[in-house]
């Protein structure tokens, strides 16, 4: 599904990713763990099409060059990024945003756009599952939301858009154990043989709830070690220092 080959990225002449390679196949869950500043968010941003990086190397998504697509085209093709720091958008009603987003994606996929009633039914159902306070749907997007509410909102968007590849950038940080379970539940219900997840995290805690197939250690913009779920436990015990 996703093939990253020798990816390099610099910003303002500062090199952040240094020859990163990674393959993700349908049905798989990959976890990337790495210390602060190792380039995890940069990787997420580049996969989603954020501008401002100088990028070289190759990224194929379903055999096509991903790097030449606009951000919204990547969303249409099924890439979703749950932001580490979801943005607050004043004056934009959450419901209206969610509906606009869902219909933009549905339209691009050649599916019928949902009318207001169909949409509300769907969003209520999904919110309930995620224990996302429905009252928040009528508020301005992420404005005044707690950290946990923002993260849940990301997962709500993920479950609405039903992506092929979901990237979760430290969705677990700042969550209490209940919220963490809800988020993990959201991922596990979505998980099937046709889609894939890239879970970026700092702690192995989340991986108790979302069982990864592969764990990778990212240091200085490069994957230094890959393994199975046990690698996460090993990391937790030894710390990152011993992986350099």
């Amino acid at each position: 599904m996703l093939k990253i080959n020798n990816l390099n990225a610099t910003i303002d002449n500062k090199s952040i990713l240094n020859g990163l390679s990674l393959d993700i196949n349908p049905g798989q869950v990959h976890a990337i763990m790495g210390p602060n500043g190792s380039g995890k968010s940069t990787l997420s941003n580049i996969l989603s099409g954020k501008k401002g990086y100088e990028v070289s190397g190759e990224v194929l998504f379903e055999e096509k060059d991903l790097l030449e697509l606009e951000t919204e085209e990547r969303a249409h093709k099924g890439i979703f990024l749950a932001f580490q720091y979801p943005l607050e958008i004043p004056g934009v009603n959450t419901n209206i945003f969610l509906k606009t987003s869902l219909n933009a994606v549905r339209k691009a996929r050649g599916e019928k756009e949902l009318d207001a009633i169909e949409f509300l039914k769907l969003v209520k159902e999904k919110s309930k599952k995620l224990k996302f306070d429905e009252e928040k749907l009528n508020r301005q997007l992420n404005v005044g939301f707690s950290g946990g509410e923002k993260k849940k909102n990301e997962i709500l968007q993920m479950s609405l858009l039903d992506p092929k590849l979901s990237i979760l950038d430290e969705t677990d940080s700042g969550l209490d154990i209940d919220a963490l379970k809800v988020v993990a539940d959201g991922v596990n219900t979505l998980r099937d043989k046709n889609n894939a997840f890239l879970i970026i995290t700092h702690y192995q805690r989340l991986l108790d709830y979302i069982k990864p197939d592969f764990v990778h250690v990212l240091m200085n913009g490069k994957i230094v070690k890959s393994g199975g779920p046990d690698l996460a436990l090993e990391l937790e015990k030894k710390g990152y220092e011993n992986f350099n």
Partner: peptide
Amino acid sequence: FYLMSRGLNY
């Protein structure tokens, strides 16, 4: 970028 990553165009 946040809005576009949700499928909205520029």
